[in-house]
């Protein structure tokens, strides 16, 4: 590379650095993302795939007040949950292993927590009327998967 080219390339680098800088919080966000990923290899994300609140009106009609949430985990299993009239019910699907050893935790952003275990078929039911935002955690032999907060 000629000196002139190297100098122009450096000017360009300065230009991009000045005019199109990363968002001010990007470094902090990435440090947090790496820390979270590193901290606990066992931790994984329960991903919200379907939410009846997002669905077409026709689907919601007839279900009355209930809210249906469907999550999947990278390992392949999924969690189907229904919130209705003071109850949080659901089923864990396609999980290999002992259903009885699985704990389901429901938390709200207000700090309330409910815990229960699954029956042999993977069903659970909790008497709870969560408000605000809620998230699910599925725990089993040292692994845990947590969803993001879902607004109710």
């Amino acid at each position: 590379m000629t000196d002139g080219d190297a100098a122009l390339l450096e000017e360009l680098r300065d230009m991009w650095t000045t005019y199109d800088p990363p968002p001010p919080d990007l470094v902090a966000t990435m440090i947090a993302a790496v820390a979270a990923a590193e901290l606990d290899d066992e931790w994984e994300m329960l991903v919200l795939m379907r939410d009846s609140a997002d669905g077409p009106v026709a689907q919601v009609r007839g279900l009355g007040t209930s809210r249906i949430l469907y999550f999947t985990a990278a390992e392949g299993w999924s969690l189907d949950a229904e919130l209705d009239e003071g109850q949080v019910r659901g089923q864990l699907l396609d999980l290999d292993g002992d259903m009885g050893a699985v704990e389901i935790v429901v938390e709200t952003s207000h700090g309330q927590t409910w815990e229960t275990t699954l029956d042999d078929y993977g069903f659970f039911a909790i008497s709870a009327e969560p408000t605000g935002s809620l998230r699910f955690t599925v725990r089993r032999d040292g692994h845990s998967a947590t969803s993001r907060w879902v607004e109710l």
Partner: peptide
């Protein structure tokens, strides 16, 4: 490295939100 990765990804014409996502995916 985050600022460097930002510029590399932005070279591909992504908007700022997508660029952020690609940078995060790189770190993960």
């Amino acid at each position: 490295m985050t600022p460097v990765l930002w510029h590399v990804v932005r070279a591909y014409g992504h908007d700022r939100q997508s660029a952020e996502d690609v940078v995060q995916a790189t770190w993960l």
